[in-house]
Design a protein around this nucleic acid. Structure first.
Lengths: 214, 214
DNA sequence: TAGATTGTTAATCGATTAACAATC
DNA sequence: TAGATTGTTAATCGATTAACAATC
């Protein structure tokens, strides 16, 4: 498999979900422009993404919904599944626990960490919560490679460093500060404040395209 | 002000937060490379962003922390503040309500909507919750232009349409389906599933850069 | 002055878009 | 066949990076 861009991987993830929804609705084949419309992209982009995946369709029937979904699954999922650790069981952490609970068996949050004695050693949304002091030990024991960070900004970087030290290779960060991770490790920041301020700005000023038109 | 890209607006939002943190820590001036390091970008990019903003520094002292923060504020914030509506007071909705509560007076969630009788007409995290049937009326009355969507995927598009019809011009969407909004309206999708699957993929396969090296 | 930083332009890079022959 | 779609290459676009004179 050649190098695949971060954006392509994200779009493949979206395509799979759309395909699964279509399949549940009874659709058995799909054209690139159908998928593009639902994904908010162009048909050419969908075809390019599937080409990257090595998936082919036919001019007559487009793509087989089930086959394509399976192919994306084989590409995205670890064959034996991947456990995910969640650090910080506050309001956002609990919401994310419940959001992902039972969605994808191959990518499930399997362990949580917090310092609050009221949460430690309890099971929250089906997930055991350990004290953060045991982070390194538990992550190593369970061979966790993916983590979600929902801790305050000032703690995020040091906990991330500890996670990477313990073997984590991918971090999804909700703390409002960009994470720095070493080469070979991947992090993605979801900054809700940045997103909301951007939305508010363009709600007030008009979209980029609009401004160009003026 | 010339056209400003979506990414630039987002970075300015981040710069402001970093600057405010620095100011609280006693810093009074900052160089582009300092800001770049904290923001996870390059010094040249910071300078270009500030140039876009029309802000100038000096070779000797760099940028004045307070002045720059204020300048970004004047650019990003509506002078009289902007109200935000939140639709869908489930686990994620409540977490977001508490996340933004009291953070930014000029951009606060002022009203919430849900269909659950247990939530309607109550005040949650300081925010009054109305039934969704009153969405259009309340949004018009309160002149709301920005909305956060935390509803199930199948309801997201129709509620978004109703919001736009009622005057909303910016939507931050957490539902796992890309939103389609008319020209002149801005939407941003935060797809946590897509992000987590992307993180898990690169955690397994190595980062893009790594693969290029091989 | 010397030296680091700023403001700004040119070069590079990558991703998206357009185009079109091949295919069913 | 006719026609819409696929697979793939070339052209375009925009954003990032590199470079450097101007500045304090």
């Amino acid at each position: 498999m050649p190098k695949v861009s971060q954006k392509t991987v994200g779009r493949l993830s979206l395509y799979r979900r759309l395909l699964n929804r279509m399949f549940a609705d009874g659709a058995r084949n799909v054209y690139s422009h159908d998928l593009a419309r639902m994904a908010g992209g162009t048909a050419a982009q969908v075809r390019r993404d599937l080409m990257t995946l090595g998936h082919t369709g036919s001019p007559k029937r487009g793509y087989d919904v089930k086959e394509l979904s399976d192919h994306i699954g084989a590409f995205l999922d670890a064959p034996d599944g991947q456990g995910v650790a969640l650090i910080g069981v506050g309001n956002l952490g609990r919401a994310i626990l419940s959001y992902f609970a039972g969605r994808r068996p191959k990518l499930a949050i399997t362990v949580a960490f917090d310092n609050d004695p009221a949460k430690v050693n309890r099971v929250i949304h089906g997930c055991r919560c350990h004290p953060i002091s045991e982070l390194s030990r538990v992550v190593r024991e369970q061979n966790v490679r993916v983590a979600i960070l929902t801790v305050p900004a000032r703690e995020a970087q040091s906990i991330s460093d500890e996670l990477v030290e313990a073997g984590v290779r991918g971090v999804l960060n909700f703390a409002p500060v960009p994470l720095r991770v070493p080469p070979g490790t991947y992090s993605e920041d979801i900054d809700m404040t940045m997103s909301l301020e951007t939305v508010a700005y363009f709600a007030r000023k008009g979209t980029v395209e609009r401004e160009t038109e003026k």
